[in-house]
Design a protein around this nucleic acid. Structure first.
Length: 293
DNA sequence: CCTGCCGCCTGCGCGC
DNA sequence: TGCGCGCAGGCGGCAG
């Protein structure tokens, strides 16, 4: 690549827990210990959750030092000196990159007083964003409703099974409900249900506890595998911290596989509309609930 | 309180 | 060739 050439925005999968965890690790490497010298907000939508607006967001961060980067589910936050934090969500297409140059999708640029590379928030579809969180070092108030995720050491498996079974909804809706268990999106929900051989419309209230537990275990397993596949990508060529793992190129059994044979039984994977998006499942391995009326 | 649905966004691939 | 449309989907807010 000739000098001065701007690297293109690398493609990314929609970030769920493993991708966000890779971003967290990358940010910790590239931002922790550094003191913010300036913040440029190029698109106000990126800080729409910050009550004071873009100017206030930038002003309040000048001179603050990033101590560490934490995560819960798909949210991550920069812990600042003084007990405050910057809460961030990648949305559909958000990335943190080190030195994104003049990417057309650059939304926020952080510069540091060490004169080192910028940390840039790039987000094509602007569903992501950031906000300053006063006193949010331990847990930003804005995400107090977000449940622990499956990879959190304090995750309460039995309690989560109970909470899911207490709901009157379908199992996939429950998996996507971040107040029940966080970090799961459409892709890992479909993969977990496929592994556990559970149809996505099964009603949680009458699902055996061991089945709900098996779905949670499957989700934890598939996310752990994706994390293992992507955990070293943040310091690669582009020095991006976008969390792209390559996992999706090879390892998906159900998601996006409409018409392709189920890796377990060979039946064609089916796609159905679900919540204005899609559900993918094996019609043979994952049986719809029998109607017992 | 509980559950389900809408709207926010942009780029891509498809059909006409 | 170009245009319009459907699709992708996390989450806050809100309706019922």
């Amino acid at each position: 690549m000739p000098p001065g050439t701007v690297p293109p925005d690398p493609p990314t999968a929609v970030p769920e827990l493993p991708e966000v965890e890779v971003v967290r690790r990358g940010l910790e490497v590239h931002a922790a210990g550094r003191t913010i010298a300036s913040v440029i907000v190029l698109n106000d939508r990126a800080v729409r959750r910050h009550p004071g607006g873009a100017a206030d967001f930038a002003a309040v961060l000048i001179g603050r030092t990033v101590l560490q980067v934490r995560r819960r589910g798909k949210y991550l936050w920069l812990v600042l000196d003084g007990g405050d934090a910057v809460l961030a969500h990648l949305g559909m297409s958000g990335q943190f990159r080190v030195g994104a140059g003049d990417s057309p999708h650059l939304r926020v640029r952080f510069a540091f007083d060490d004169g080192g590379p910028d940390v840039d928030f790039v987000d094509q579809r602007t569903f992501g964003g950031m906000a300053f969180s006063p006193g949010g070092a331990e847990l930003p108030a804005a995400i107090s409703h977000i449940a622990l995720d499956l990879l959190d050491p304090a995750f309460d498996r039995a309690g989560t099974v109970r909470a899911i079974r207490a709901r009157h909804t379908e199992i996939k809706r429950a998996l996507l409900d971040q107040s029940l268990v966080s970090g799961i999106g459409n892709i890992y929900a479909d993969e977990a249900l496929w592994r556990a051989k559970v149809h996505y419309t099964r009603p949680t209230a009458v699902l055996p506890g061991r089945t709900v537990g098996a779905v949670l275990d499957a989700a934890a397993a598939v996310m752990s595998e994706a994390l293992a596949a992507g955990g070293t990508s943040f310091d690669a060529l582009y020095v991006n911290v976008n969390g792209d793992s390559g996992y999706f190129d090879r390892s998906l059994a159900a998601y996006g596989q409409e018409g392709l044979p189920c890796p377990r039984c060979g039946a064609p994977i089916r796609r159905e509309p679900f919540m204005n998006r899609s559900s993918y499942f094996c019609p043979r391995c994952q049986r719809r609930a029998r109607w017992t009326g």
